[in-house]
Amino acid sequence: MITLTDVAKSYNSEVSIGPVNLQLPAGGITALVGPNGAGKSTLLTMIGRLLGVDRGAIEVGGLDVSTTKSKDLAKIVSILRQENHYVTRLTVRQLVGFGRFPYSKGRLTLLDEEIISRYIDFLDLGGLEDRYLDQLSGGQRQRAYVAMVLCQETDYVLLDEPLNNLDMRHSVQMMQHLHQAARELGRTIIIVLHDINFACHYADRICAVKDGQIAEFGTPEEIMSDDLLSRVFETPVQCINGPRGRLACFY
């Protein structure tokens, strides 16, 4: 379980987040949605301890993220930011191998290699594992990054807009992989999404963030209502029943 208690962060008098009180249960996929600048990514990076909080406390799996040692947290929670750029030239396999750092401290054992192989195959990267990251397409590269954080084998996986810049096919594949990781590997995945329809279809819970506050939190069925979405996104939204579940129309 991830617990946020009175969490606040202020950049200046106009831009601030919180105080946020939120409990995200373990298991499944939780999607953070909301308009641009609402504070979704900031909340996520604070949970992932990449950004400090000004006030309040965040607990992940019972550990306070600001006082627990970073190396212990690295076995509990992993986070993938939106922008990833590395100056070093790495192959897919080497990148995924870095996910084992909390356990191996850089000395990869045969067991580590085996785990790396498993996650490479889990994300269908087997044929690409010796390719360098700069030789991959955006979708393939994104899969490699996700393979790295999954290879970290943490209970909680935080992903900041993993569908960014992915086409229809790759977005669906990515969500299916994540769905599988949540179901079959028992991971708790918190994901920032922009497309409410993706959130509705793949997430178990949706958390709507607006103006640095939690606006709504519930199951996709509860969130997918016309006036709720129209209010959160400040855009007229109409929800209809599609062939595979509810769909939000806002075009």
Partner: peptide
């Protein structure tokens, strides 16, 4: 980001 995420 990656350094902190992986525990250093």
């Amino acid at each position: 980001d990656s350094t902190v995420n992986l525990g250093l």
